[in-house]
């Protein structure tokens, strides 16, 4: 157990970021911090489906973009924004920001590397005081992975997670998983657990290649 990342704020929900009451309230509409139409991968949307949060200041949006562009340590084809684990970046004062990260799995060992990478990137961009905190609520879901993130996973040879459908349990079994190598839907489960907590091991019945599947959570 290495306590690299600060975990003091473990159970604070995303609705109550630290110092939310201290920061100057931005009065501009969301468009002022976005250069294009908001898409699934725009920095403004990187926090996923959490509405009702304060609008980012231009600086926060810029920092969120920088933090969000950090590659995932275990799946470097994905950025943290595409993975949907970056919850927010809040300025506390000049040169001081708090970054909120959520783990994919509670025990995800990559979290500390992510925190260190974000700190380094923001330091390099002139923010001396960076504090990365972990938030658990609302719980991360594979539905938080962006469309671009799913595309990159498949291209990398990892079958992307299937979207959750209403009423299905946490372990969906109905839809088939497509082989990322040959595209066949005839694939079979070898093990529910694979090289990392977030993946299952499958094999393609058609081309016989084994492959990782980013399993639904």
């Amino acid at each position: 157990m290495v306590t690299g990342a600060r975990r003091t704020d473990e159970l604070r929900t995303a609705d109550a970021p630290p110092g939310a009451g201290d920061r100057p309230v931005s009065t501009g509409p969301p468009d002022t911090v976005s250069t294009g139409p908001p898409g699934p991968d725009s920095p403004v949307d990187a926090g996923g489906p959490r509405a009702g949060k304060p609008v980012d200041t231009p600086l926060e949006a810029r920092l969120r973009e920088l933090a969000g562009a950090v590659p995932d340590p275990e799946l470097p084809v994905l950025t943290l924004a595409e993975l949907g684990v970056l919850r927010g970046v809040r300025g506390l004062g000049p040169g001081s920001v708090v970054v909120e990260l959520t783990p994919t799995y509670t025990g995800c060992p990559a979290l500390e590397t992510m925190a260190a990478d974000i700190e380094r990137v923001l330091h390099d961009h002139g923010i001396p005081d960076v504090s990365v905190v972990t938030v658990l609520s609302p719980a991360w879901s594979t539905d938080d992975i962006s469309a671009e993130g799913r595309r990159k996973l498949a291209e990398f040879g990892i079958a992307p997670p299937r979207p959750h459908t209403a009423g299905s349990g946490p372990v969906p079994l109905a839809l088939s998983v497509r082989c990322p190598h040959c595209g066949s839907t005839e694939t079979e489960l070898l093990s529910r657990f694979s090289s990392t907590a977030c993946k299952a091991l499958r094999r393609c019945v058609s081309c016989r290649e084994p492959f990782d599947h980013f399993k639904e959570l």
């Binding site: 783990p103 509670t106 025990g107 060992p109 658990l136 070898l190 093990s191 990392t196 907590a197």
Partner: peptide, 24 residues
């Protein structure tokens, strides 16, 4: 080997829970 990986993954999930709970 698959079971080795599976049990280690489950252990890791539990360790993550333990870290949060004990930190409380």
């Amino acid at each position: 080997l698959e079971e080795e990986v599976a049990l280690a993954n489950i252990a890791l999930d539990l360790l993550g829970q333990a870290r949060v709970l004990l930190s409380l």
